[in-house]
Design a protein around this nucleic acid. Structure first.
Length: 842
RNA sequence: GGGGGCGUGGCGAAAUUGGCAACCGCAGAGGACUUAAAAUCCUCUGUCCGCAAGGACUUGCAGGUUCGACUCCUGCCGCCCCUACCA
């Protein structure tokens, strides 16, 4: 453990103070400059920032500072996703009001972020629990209501019988309530929904137009939307005139292979189809069994399919064949029509069920030769299918659908897995849903001029008994904005994912008080050019935000179609085999690391240890290494200040991207060193721009520092680094380049050293260095000589030596000759400037 | 069951995308400085054979394509993530 560290505490405080005092990272719209909107997913103010959080901010800051140096007008804001259940839990457990708890956390975490030295424009801070923020979300809610994009319906939700409350999907872990561990049960309840399904097609289509997104996130979104094309039609129930069952299928071509049909156990038509009391009792038993079973084992890989054969039969509209009707647990009410035609010949699930229940199986697609499998889902020629015989599957799908349409029996149908977004939460700490219920007028939206509907401060929070707002008489009892009579307020609050669906727009004009955001500001800044956040939001937040942006566009508020042009999904920070989190008790606190090693070292380690998309194992020794490296840079610069011309009499500083004839090295060692400098510029720039491979960028800088030390040590001993002025110029070029390249990774220490060199203007107002092509040019290269693929020698040759000459040099090489010996030379492969491979035969 | 990803030294990782496998760092060994320690600096460190020069082997396993494969193809094995009877 080191005892001799550079004074990072003083330096970090000093530069944070200067950046703040000079408002260096405050930005305004400036049409004359290209903009860059760099955004990290804002945090929930849960208490303290730990090293698991630091990673995303370090990445964001690095990109923001890099883009500053590339000449962009960079918007880099921060705020708080401040509504959420933990605040309510804290209130229940410790008696602290959610407002107090939340704002105290925000104050602490803001200080932590400031001490990390992240380049935020703090004038744009946004806090979502502020009525001035959620007011606009309420206004949009009303507009969505007017357009049918927000609606109320009864549906099945997760209900915790012990807490007496609805739980969001994310609050259910393995079928159990995250708070009290009791088993969650489905329950029918009224709630509010956003009609995200109206945008399913557009959300899907744009997945192909987001090249800056990781493919796996796009895949997850596509799967979540789950578009499938097929047909819908009715199966008349035999003996029940007028009664028919609607089914959806993606394989209308297989309809002649239907040997039975299935209803989901909870299908509403079951009660009409089944009239006999004895059979009804059997249905009730079956339903209970299914309900119980689904709670016990949802993840069992190959659980048997349970089914109950009903006495009713349904008719295949294509051939009038009557087939048995079943209730079965493998058909769910939540998808399609909750009923299917079963074609065991071409569907694996149907095959399995048919085998278990002794049902006939008809093949309607000719199997490939040698087919030994069961259900066949591939392409082929139709057989046993009446008028479809001889067609391919695709043709038959079309013909079957046309047949249904022409007879008015069905229609082509597109189905989505995506469900409408349920936004009702029976909680206190969220944005109130701005509607009222009036005895005379029914459901009425709050009038715009009465917004915001603010959360009452006085509330009893017990975690039991439904929405806490329902017990606040002063909130519930209100006046109908339409008739002036008495009305009751809606007591559900909105899902907190609504706030995070537009905060990036609010940052464009955070204080704007005539609307959600100022049009001009949003037109200038949006969309976000680089978004950075965890993979856990691959579907939820990122899909909601895309949807909400499109709604705002269709309301005429913005012109953008998509909020985030590029997305970087960073991996988790792991300690002791698990994601760093408060509940697991494996956090390394940001305060501790900053006190012991400094903010720069903490950031450097997290950027260096792994590429950003991979998980990162926290390692105490790793941060020692990062700290050691920064100390090395510090000692070198401070130790060579006189030679580097730092201090009170700065030399005229030349931008490193400009070649000065006077500094061009005259010795081979000098040229090699200068090549190393410019090679590093090229590599670091490439690594940041191309793949976000910050770990290799840092490795390149470390190599340059190693070369720098070697050059400085060797130069004095007469090995040919050139005369003193030349050596000093090269050292200065190398040091300045190192500081410029390292700046976005470790802003404080580099800024301090930059000023020690005599610069009076911030490092982050400098231009990012550009590699000098002249310096990169090599005159000689080492070429590998292989004999039959094995390296046997090396040649030092002039760059671009002719193939013929390379061949001769290789064959004539003394190290190579013995390996060729008397063997016959079949051919010689020459890769210019790389290698020669001599291929021989005995 | 479906979809995606991964597999390289003791560890985190790298490899200009088909051309010298292991850059950079961590850990370890030896040495210098020191009364001593810490810090710092230098040397070594994929495995095996060899005093050495040098050689053989090595990117989960088995094949294939190629002058040449960590990289491309096929089949296995193992791990991780997502999703779950989606009709």
């Amino acid at each position: 453990m080191s005892t001799d560290r550079y004074p990072f505490r003083e330096i970090e405080a000093k530069w944070q103070g200067i950046w703040e005092a000079t408002k260096q990272f405050r930005v305004h719209e400036d049409p004359s400059r290209p903009k860059f909107y760099c955004l990290e997913m804002f945090p929930y103010p849960s208490g303290r920032i730990h090293m698991g959080h630091v990673r995303v901010y370090a990445i964001g800051d690095l990109l923001a500072r890099y883009k500053w140096m590339r000449g962009y007008n960079v918007l880099h804001p921060m705020g708080w996703d401040a509504f959420g259940l933990p605040a309510e839990n804290a209130a229940i457990e410790h008696g602290v009001h959610p407002v107090i708890w939340t704002y105290e956390n925000i104050d602490y975490m803001r200080t932590q972020l400031m001490k990390m030295g992240i380049s935020y424009d703090w004038d744009r801070e946004v806090t979502t629990c502020d009525p001035a923020y959620y007011k606009w979300e309420q206004l949009i809610f009303i507009k969505m209501l007017e357009r049918g994009l927000a609606y109320r319906k009864r549906s099945t939700v997760n209900w915790c019988p012990s807490c007496q409350t609805v739980l969001a999907n994310e609050q259910v872990e393995d079928g159990r309530c995250w708070r009290c561990d009791s088993e969650v049960a489905p329950r029918e309840i009224d709630g509010w929904f956003f009609k995200i399904t109206s945008y399913a097609d557009e959300l899907l289509a744009w997945c192909d137009r987001l090249p800056g997104w990781p493919e796996r996130v796009l895949t997850m979104q596509r799967n979540w939307i789950g578009k499938s094309e097929g047909a819908e039609f009715d199966l008349p129930v035999a003996g029940h005139p007028g009664l028919s069952i609607r089914v959806f299928t993606t394989r209308p071509d297989t309809v002649f292979g239907m040997t039975y049909a299935v209803l989901a156990p909870e299908h509403p038509l079951v009660d009409q189809v089944v009239t006999d009391p004895v059979e009804r009792a059997a249905v009730a038993r079956f339903r209970a069994e299914v309900a119980r079973q689904s709670e016990i084992e949802r993840t069992a890989a190959d659980r048997p399919k349970r089914g109950l054969r009903l006495s009713a039969r349904v008719l295949n509209p294509f051939n009038e064949a009557a087939v048995p009707l079943f209730l079965a647990d493998y058909v769910v009410m939540g998808y399609g029509t909750g009923a299917i035609m079963a074609v065991p010949g071409e569907d694996e699930r149907d095959w399995e069920f048919a085998e278990q229940h002794g049902l006939p199986i008809i093949e309607t697609v000719k199997r490939p030769d040698g087919w030994t499998g069961k259900a066949y889902t591939g392409d082929g020629v139709k057989v046993n299918s009446g008028f479809l015989d001889g067609l391919t599957v695709a043709e038959a799908k079309r013909r079957a659908t046309d047949w249904l349409v022409s007879r008015g029996l069905g229609a082509a149908k597109v189905n989505y897995r995506l469900r409408d977004w349920g936004i009702s939460r029976q909680r206190y700490w969220g944005a109130p849903i701005p509607v009222l219920y009036c005895d005379a007028c029914g459901m009425v939206p709050e009038a715009a001029q009465n917004l915001p509907v603010t959360l009452p401060r006085d509330v009893q929070l017990s975690g039991k008994g439904g929405s806490p707002l329902a017990n606040v008489a002063s909130f519930v009892n209100a006046i109908c904005p339409r008739c002036g009579g008495p009305a009751r307020r809606e007591t559900d609050t909105m899902d907190t994912f609504v706030e995070s669906s537009w905060y990036f727009l609010r940052y464009c004009s955070p204080g704007y008080d005539s609307g959600m955001f100022e049009r001009g500001a949003a037109d200038y800044w949006m969309p976000v050019d680089q978004y950075i956040g965890g993979i856990e939001h691959a579907v939820l937040h990122l899909l909601y935000a895309r949807f909400y942006t499109k709604v705002l566009r269709d309301l005429g508020l913005t012109k953008i179609d998509e909020p985030f042009m590029a997305l970087l999904s960073q991996g988790m920070v792991i300690k002791d085999g698990a994601k760093m989190s408060k509940s697991k008790g494996n956090v390394v606190s940001d305060d501790f690391v900053r006190e012991k090693y400094g903010a720069d070292a903490g950031r450097l380690f997290e950027l260096f240890a792994a590429p950003p998309e991979k998980d990162l194992e926290w390692n105490d020794q790793g941060i020692e290494g990062a700290s050691r490296f920064l100390n090395r840079v510090w000692r070198f610069v401070v130790g060579h200040l006189t030679e580097l011309g730092g201090g009170e009499t700065p030399p005229p500083s030349a931008p490193p991207d400009r070649v000065r004839a006077a500094t061009l090295p005259t010795t081979e060692a000098g040229r090699a060193f200068r090549r190393a400098i410019h090679e590093t510029i090229r590599r670091v720039t490439d690594d940041i721009e191309r793949e976000f491979h910050f770990n290799t960028a840092i490795a390149a800088i470390m190599e340059l520092v190693n070369a720098l030390q070697a050059f400085a040590a060797a130069a004095g001993d007469g090995t040919g680094a050139g005369a003193a002025p030349e050596r000093a110029a090269l050292l200065r070029e190398a040091v300045e380049t190192t500081l410029l390249l390292l700046g976005p990774f470790c802003p404080h220490v580099t800024e301090e050293l930059w000023s020690l060199l005599g610069h009076t203007e911030s490092l982050f107002k400098q231009r990012w260095p550009v590699a000098d092509p002249g310096a990169l040019q090599k005159t000689e290269v080492t070429v590998v000589v292989q004999v039959d693929g094995k390296v046997r020698g090396r040649l030092l040759v002039d760059v671009d030596t002719a193939d013929d000459q390379m061949r001769q040099l290789a064959l004539g090489d003394d190290r190579v000759k013995p390996w060729v010996g008397q063997r016959h030379i079949e051919k010689v492969v020459v890769v210019p400037n790389r290698l020669v491979n001599i291929v021989t035969r005995a």
